[in-house]
Design a protein around this nucleic acid. Structure first.
Lengths: 237, 237
DNA sequence: CCAATAGTGTCTATCAGACATTATCTA
DNA sequence: TAGATAATGTCTGATAGACACTATTGG
């Protein structure tokens, strides 16, 4: 038998395989808080519980796994997130009552404002404060996945400015610093934080300012390449 | 319909889903070279080409994805590797001629010696030098996956001593340093390399020495926890 | 003026890079 | 003793932490 013949005869259902889904942990930062986008499940299993946006690959419409994630997130938020990164895959017999199940989990970041109206218009999609989420009973192992995503973002906050994707296109340094502080879980030295960003030339001064009750803060915009930049030295853990 | 009824009726084949496999990039270090374990494919597709060890989940025997990887690697090497880490998942319509396919790729490290006889006893499993592998025509997207795994290990070499898992249980510091140099792709300062490992107390002096034509080198053993340690400051890139 | 917030100056501590020096083995 | 390899001493430079200080707004 040659390869053409093999492929023509191939029946992908001859071997039973695990269920395959994707899930996305979409974070944002709003009103000094980290929030995550959750969806109320309308179908079994876990009907009525809140869980991560996600679902099955559409073999016709999706060409890649990332297509699936972008599609699912766009369905819930109306837009595609500016930052999307694969987190990890989790597969075992326990995580889904239907049996052997694998999920490819992603972490995403976006500004609260860029989907505010869309999210407000539907009842089963909500931004929830992370501290509150950690006390909820979520579907499947989604609590664990959110924990993994949060830990990954904490690490990123120590050696990159990736968290900036959770902010609007222009933002102030005190704002960005506070976001990092929330992620890391402790206050940072203003000077250290600003110095490294300035030296690496990661941000563009827009010339605008924003007043917050004291001296107005300068508004910055990220450079295209700044998301990929990593500092050689971490902030202290 | 309640949840029990739903689960009883659930037919996981009602939606078509991608093929799901795992693949492992198993590295070792032997004779001053990085090597990767490859397997000659005996079946279609890609019959006759060399590729990564891996395959399908066995829904009965495997409880987790990691079980699948450990089982597949044990089949090829006779033992389970001391270091195993998920790399990333790749899923698209292009990577497998059978159509939509997802692989969960892992990186693993082990000592050459711990499977030397087992590997030597079979013709279709071989350790191949990485530089040679990069010029081969491998199955599927395995060349890409090896590249990703290698880049990840390069990063680890900059901020951890994870590469030590590619060495025998006891090893010398010049040996470990050279492995890091191969991974990073440039020579390192002996003093810097030793200093950070010593200060973090990552290794145990076995008291033994090994002679290599000059002053004998001290033999060390990793501590249990040293694989998880990360330096706050990277070696220069 | 004061309160509040933004932003800077400057000293110290830590640690990697560079490279010279010393140590310990074999032939 | 010479050659080879292992290991250390020590200086410099970069950069994070600490914290005091100055700047710019509104009331």
């Amino acid at each position: 038998m040659d390869e053409q013949q093999f492929l023509a005869d191939y029946d992908k259902h001859q071997y039973d395989s695990p269920l395959l889904t994707i899930d996305a942990v979409l974070f944002t930062y709003h009103q000094e808080c980290l929030k995550v986008l959750l969806v109320e499940r309308s179908n079994y299993p876990e009907r009525g519980k809140w869980g991560l946006p996600g679902g099955f690959v559409d073999l016709q419409r999706d060409k890649t796994l990332e297509d699936t994630v972008r599609r699912k997130l766009a369905e819930k938020t109306g837009v595609e997130p500016p930052y999307l990164e694969q987190l990890q895959s989790i597969g075992n017999t326990q995580r889904d009552p239907r049996g052997w199940s694998v999920t490819v989990a992603y972490t995403a970041l976006m500004a609260f404002q860029s989907c505010e109206t869309h999210v407000a218009s539907v009842a089963d999609v909500q931004w929830l404060e992370l501290d509150r989420v950690s006390r909820m009973d979520l579907a499947f192992d989604h609590q664990t996945i959110i924990g993994l995503a949060r830990e990954r973002m904490r690490q990123k906050a120590l050696y990159s400015i990736v968290p900036a994707y959770a902010l609007p296109e222009t933002f102030t340094l005190p704002e960005l610093q506070h976001l990092h502080e929330v992620l890391i879980g402790k206050p940072l030295q203003k000077k250290s934080f600003r110095r490294r960003i300035e030296q690496a030339e990661l941000l563009i001064n827009t010339g605008e300012k924003r007043s917050e009750g004291g001296r107005p803060a300068t508004l910055y915009r990220m450079k295209q390449t700044s998301g990929a930049y990593t500092f050689v030295r971490n902030l202290e853990d």
